[in-house]
């Protein structure tokens, strides 16, 4: 397990992200309403650079013919085929088994770190 410094708090404003290269891997770091999350910049479907996709909300699980918009800024949508992934867990919204790889983050003294490896 290794900690990699990726940015200072404040360098990634709410609702934005950066993409960093760590151990040859492209990783996106997102500020979701003040919390930080890191995902592999690689869609599990066909390998698109998922961090080029929009960050958005979506229609949440509902009753038939109800539309409830929510989770604003918590979803990244793949730029190619539109699959939705939960930035907080990496899980796709259609199956728990389909997920983009996510990495734990730590903040120490205003510095953001990504944990890579076990």
């Amino acid at each position: 397990m290794a900690l990699y410094p990726v940015a200072l708090e404040g360098e990634i404003p709410v609702g934005t992200n950066i993409v960093v290269e760590i151990e040859g891997r492209s990783i996106g770091v997102y500020n979701v309403n003040g919390e930080y999350f890191a995902i592999h910049n690689y869609c599990p479907h066909q390998g698109a650079e998922i961090c080029k996709g929009p960050v958005c909300g979506t229609n949440m699980e509902s009753e038939v013919y109800q539309f409830i918009y929510g989770r604003d800024q918590e979803i990244v949508r793949c730029p190619w085929h539109g699959w939705e992934f939960d930035l907080k867990t990496g899980k796709s919204l259609f199956s728990d088994k389909v997920r983009v790889r996510s990495y734990p983050m730590q903040i120490q003294d205003g510095q953001l770190f990504i944990t890579v490896g076990k």
Partner: peptide
């Protein structure tokens, strides 16, 4: 198609 477009049918 559902994998991409599920927000059309969130139920």
């Amino acid at each position: 198609n559902f994998k991409a477009l599920r927000a059309s049918t969130p139920w």
